[in-house]
């Protein structure tokens, strides 16, 4: 992955910056150029809340090569308190059997992956059980 590509996602991945449609209120994360609900092209910048709940989840036991040393790991769709949904790993889960849909989580800043041994470290959000 090239650094430019990583760099342009920083506001979203580090700070949960999103866009809110000025007409219908649709929240775009990441920000978009056009609203998929009402076709408006005007958004105002907002910052998402870092708390929410698990909508669904899985435990990845066979991962892509990049994540193969971290398996098994939990990943889920998280609905933040402002109703926006995103996909995030659920870090630090000891007993996967106890993971449940509906559990409260909080997003934290973690390292997500490395670009090989000598490339950049890549950071972003993960969820932890609240």
């Amino acid at each position: 992955m090239i650094t430019a590509r990583y760099h342009r996602e920083v506001p979203q991945r580090y700070r949960l910056e999103a866009g809110k449609c000025t007409k219908c209120g649709y929240v775009a994360f990441p920000p978009r150029l056009v609203c998929p609900k009402c076709s408006t092209k005007k958004f105002k910048p907002i910052v998402l809340k870092d708390e929410g709940k698990i909508i669904t989840y899985t435990v990845i036991r066979v991962g892509p090569d990049k994540f193969s040393k971290e398996t098994p790991y939990a990943i889920g769709i998280i609905e933040l308190n402002d109703k926006l949904r995103l996909t995030a790993q659920i870090a630090g889960v000891v007993d996967f059997e106890k993971l449940k849909i509906g559990q409260k989580v909080k997003l934290v800043f973690r390292k997500i992956q490395d670009d090989g041994k000598a490339g950049i470290h890549m950071y972003g959000y993960k969820a932890v059980l609240a």
Binding site: A91, V108, F109, R110, K111, H121, Y123
Partner: peptide, 11 residues
């Protein structure tokens, strides 16, 4: 954790 380093701890 495998996803923690000086930077994430600092944050």
């Amino acid at each position: 954790g495998q996803d923690e380093d000086t930077i994430t701890i600092s944050v």
